[in-house]
Design a protein around this nucleic acid. Structure first.
Lengths: 360, 360
DNA sequence: CGTTTGCACATAATAAAAACGAGTGCCAAA
DNA sequence: TTTGGCACTCGTTTTTATTATGTGCAAACG
């Protein structure tokens, strides 16, 4: 059955999705004619709706109800039907809170972004900071006192981690220097699992007469790496989900909360999608396997740094969420963060830019 | 109306609470006689129950139902009636996972503890890391390259933070040294808000000819302090709550989830209670103002370090939670963590303890 | 005087039946 | 191609009846 998506069908579909987003209730033919002025009778609309249903854009919860957009319906709505949303001044000022409150750590920036998004859209939001794979790594060491030294791990993407190492034998500057050199030649792998026994032994050997510090140092590095190499997920506004009728049944609420809590699922999903260059996921009722949450959709936007995707911010909500607003907000924030990152990078080079006065 | 809590009343109350914890349903007189062998008739039990109700230990949801313990009932149960719970070998091994996987940072230790507790008890768990107020503070600085330096903040309680400062004018060892000295004399206050304009100016003055670095450095310190001086809350096993019938109504679920999300409330509550030397909170239906969650209780256990309370781990669940198990688990874990902390402290002093072999 | 027995009363939970209403599908006519 | 009319379906709500459980009380018992 081949069929054309005529102008009128488009308009009807758009109206249905719009109305459904607002009300959450199935949309009937009569409702459409009264509130949208199609200058045709309900019966005509019914015919069109019937065809839209055959084409897979709509479906009926049951015989005697109005119609509801399918996932396909929502997707085409997002991709070609919905109008652009222009953020109001108030909304922009909410979003700008983030960038005005400058934070060095990407980690916390993303958390803040998530908070802001949730507040603005009234959906649950999340942020993911990817593990910085393949980024160059180097170490600095610092003598703190005779019993402890500090190992500083500096990653290409500005992230700095440090760990204080307490040792039982006295250390001195020379030892610290030796440790630094040994670290920088032997422990430059990015993942905690890369530190195998041979690596450890090579490191120990490189330390020479300071080999007795090897164990403590490697342990510290191992901890820093393993804390760093896992993705950091942050979720905000969980309770907001529960305000929407689609989650008024506890079983539904539970399934979506489970996803939120099982953050690995979320990460998996993001990875899968970002390969597809897609950034909208709508959970299908036929449960395509990835996520078992009914009537739920995910929208997210990647955060890039130097062309690489270093994270994402996004929104989780009912399938009928206000996509135009959500997408507009995510775009705005995400590009803001990405720009800031890149600027910071530029600023990082020693270029003798005139400093602004102190701001506190 | 003055009344004695006789032995038999105690036994009846205990039986009721035990049964109610298990079933979650109101307990009737007949049920008690059949399952507990009181060698009296239901009518006698009824009389006793009626008196227990007058005394405030029990209440009836409605006329034709069994009885349910009140908050007072639960409290007396926890304080004097319930038997001690002995953790099984399996349970101990779950708990011991935590200590076997040694982590340096208190922060992550508490998170892990929270995870373990949630898994073991099947309730929602949380951990709070208090802001380290009044702890001594000092700085180390490190030259990274001509365009950036590292400020390391070392706190008495082993927590080390660092921030890389990028500057536009070239720095050298002398400058770094000057910065370190200036920091250690002028910025030793613990809270971000303590950095006022006069403090900043004093710091700038102390820097002498390196005053142009002042702004960037103070900004970095400010960020570290403000990230540090707020409490860190971690919550685990949220979805587990929803399995209990008391949260099958969405409104109830929402109210308790709101608390979990509004972490400030949680912190407030903990502070309030730890002053009272109490560590059990049962949300009263009359809503005593602090927390508006029905049928919910909180149990937590402080984590101490050098006698000071540095945090807490705890459990949130239905009022009828399995207190004996929860309390036993919390005790075990919390004391384990506290001991480890204190040991680490001792180990920190240079005492030339023979090192164990490397463990990876 | 504490305990027991028996019975009436209250009420939540469950089930079944009835009335309602919103919306479609289809057909014949414009 | 569109429209009005109308029967039909099916979820929702309301009503009514039924059942079950546990208490409270009074009178009887040891």
């Amino acid at each position: 059955m081949k069929m054309e998506l005529t102008e009128r069908k488009k308009r009807i579909l758009k109206s249905i999705v719009d109305s459904y987003i607002e009300s959450g209730e199935p949309i009937g033919s009569k409702f459409l004619t009264t509130s949208y002025d199609f200058s045709v009778s309900p019966a005509t609309i019914r015919n069109e709706m019937s065809e839209l249903e055959d084409m897979g854009y709509l479906e009926q919860p049951h015989t005697s109800a109005g119609r509801v957009p399918t996932s396909l319906g929502f997707k085409t709505y997002v991709n070609s039907l919905m109008e652009k949303y222009f953020l109001t001044m108030e909304e922009l000022s909410v979003l700008d809170e983030l960038t005005s409150f400058k934070i060095n750590e990407l980690n916390r920036t993303l958390e803040q972004a998530s908070k802001v998004i949730s507040r603005l859209t009234n959906y649950t939001s999340f942020s993911v900071l990817r593990s910085p794979e393949d980024m160059a790594l180097r170490y600095e060491t610092l003598l703190i006192d005779a019993a402890s030294l500090l190992i500083v791990m500096i990653c290409e993407n500005d992230i700095v981690k440090s760990s204080r190492v307490k040792v039982s034998l006295p250390v001195d500057e020379a030892a610290v220097k030796a440790i630094q050199d040994a670290l920088n030649t032997n422990l430059i792998k990015r993942h905690a699992d890369d530190i195998t026994m041979p690596v450890f032994m090579a490191f120990e050997k490189a330390l020479g007469k300071y080999a007795h510090f090897a164990s403590d140092c490697v342990k510290a590095v191992y901890e820093m790496l393993s804390a760093d190499s896992k993705e950091h997920v942050h979720v905000d506004g969980v309770t907001k989900l529960l305000s929407y009728p689609e989650y008024s049944s506890v079983s539904n609420a539970k399934s979506v909360l489970a996803i939120i809590e099982e953050q690995n699922k979320l990460i998996e999903l993001l990875y899968g999608l970002s390969e597809d260059k897609q950034n909208l996921y709508i959970s299908d009722d036929e449960s395509d396997g990835i996520l078992p949450a009914k009537d739920t959709s995910f929208v997210f936007h990647p955060i890039t740094y130097n062309g690489k995707t270093v994270g994402a911010i996004g929104v989780i909500g009912p399938k009928r969420m206000d996509y135009k607003k959500v997408i507009a907000s995510l775009n705005y924030l995400a590009s803001g963060i990405s720009i800031e990152l890149n600027e910071k990078k530029r600023k990082g080079e020693p270029e003798t830019i005139p400093r602004p006065g102190h701001e506190l």
